[in-house]
Amino acid sequence: MRISVQQAPFDLGEESQNFASGHKNMGAIVTFTGIVRDLPDDPMDAMEIEHYPGMTEKAIRAMAQDAKERFSLGDVLVIHRHGRLHPGEMIMMVGTAARHRKDALEAATFLMDYLKSRAPFWKREISGTGAAWVAATDEDEAALTRW
């Protein structure tokens, strides 16, 4: 299991290849990459993401361990960036490896739902009209109820 909270960009191809390598007993590898998206009505200059070092990694590691046990995963990868990011930049990546595709797919969705709503990150969108902290939406919260 690898959890990385980092400011630096990551190479999606390299991370995917490294994660997929060496899993001879796994029948499915699922990866998901989140990208900073622009605001629909007010173009965003940047998103600033804050966290508490140590606390954030510990919380994500606990959720990844839960996913590993719940979905019988062989491996888990979570990369999440912090700092100032711009629309179009990769913000996070989740990888899951399991013997069967259903477990790998469900575990990836479970982790993405958690990262979106419960991981201890604070996000602020900055646009030409000002800055606003991002709150979980009703849709984000509803997604958690399936787990």
Score class of each variant (00 low, 15 high):
Ala108Phe: 02
Leu39Cys: 14
Gly34Lys: 07
Val94Gly: 08
Asn25Ser: 14
Arg70Ala: 11
Met63Val: 07
His82Leu: 05
Pro53Gln: 01
Gln65Gly: 11
Gly34Ile: 08
Gly88Asp: 04
Gly13Phe: 02
Val76Arg: 06
Ile3Lys: 03
Arg124Lys: 15
Thr129Lys: 11
Arg99Cys: 05
Arg61Asp: 07
Ser117Ala: 15
Arg70Pro: 04
Asp140Cys: 05
Gln65Asp: 14
Glu50Tyr: 10
Thr129Tyr: 02
Arg84His: 12
Val94Asn: 08
Ala67Ile: 10
Gly128His: 10
Lys123Leu: 03
Met44Asp: 07
Leu115Asn: 01
Lys102Ala: 14
Gly95Thr: 05
Ser117Cys: 14
Asn18Ile: 04
Ala46Arg: 14
Arg37Gln: 05
Leu144Gln: 08
Thr145Cys: 08
Asp45Ser: 09
Met90Cys: 12
Ala142Tyr: 13
Glu48Leu: 09
Ala136Gly: 12
Ala64Val: 01
Asp41Ile: 04
Asp140Gln: 06
Met63His: 13
Ala62Phe: 12
Gln7Trp: 03
Val76Lys: 09
Gly83Glu: 05
Ser72Asn: 13
Met47Lys: 02
Pro43Gly: 03
Arg101Met: 07
Asp138Val: 07
Arg61Tyr: 04
Tyr52Ile: 09
Thr129Arg: 13
Gln17Ile: 13
Thr31Asn: 13
Ser16Thr: 11
Met26Asn: 08
Leu12Gln: 14
Ala143Cys: 11
Met63Arg: 15
Ala67His: 00
Ala119Trp: 02
Ser4Ile: 08
Ala28His: 02
Arg70Met: 09
Asp140Leu: 06
Asp140Ala: 09
Phe10Lys: 01
Met26Phe: 05
Trp122Asp: 02
Ala98Met: 10
Ala98Asp: 05
Met90Ile: 03
Lys24Asp: 11
Arg146Gly: 06
Ala98Tyr: 06
Ala143Phe: 10
Thr109Leu: 10
Ala62Asp: 15
Phe32Asp: 01
Ile35Glu: 09
Val134Gln: 06
Gly27Ile: 06
Ala98Phe: 02
Ile126Ser: 02
Ser4Glu: 14
His100Cys: 11
Val134Trp: 07
Glu50Thr: 14
Thr33Met: 04
Lys58Glu: 12
Ala132Thr: 12
Arg70Asn: 10
Asp41Leu: 07
His82Cys: 07
Val94Glu: 04
Gln6Gly: 11
Val94Thr: 09
Asp138Pro: 00
Glu125Arg: 06
Ile126Leu: 07
Phe10Gln: 05
Ala104Ser: 14
His86Asp: 06
Ala20Gln: 03
Arg101Lys: 12
Ala62Trp: 09
Lys123Val: 01
His23Ala: 15
His82Glu: 02
Pro40Trp: 04
Met47Trp: 00
Lys24Ile: 03
Gly74His: 05
Arg118Ile: 02
Gly88Tyr: 04
Glu57Gln: 12
Asp138Met: 06
Lys68Glu: 13
Ala59Val: 06
Ser117Ile: 08
Asn18Glu: 10
Glu15Ala: 15
Ile35Asn: 02
Ser21Gly: 08
Leu144Arg: 14
Met93Thr: 10
Asp113Leu: 01
Met1Asn: 12
Pro120Asn: 07
Ala107Glu: 00
Val76Gln: 01
Thr96Tyr: 00
Ala20Arg: 05
Ala136Lys: 11
Ala108Ile: 01
Gly128Phe: 04
Asp140Val: 08
Tyr114Phe: 14
Ala104Lys: 00
Phe19Met: 00
Arg61Gln: 12
Glu15Cys: 15
Val30Ile: 11
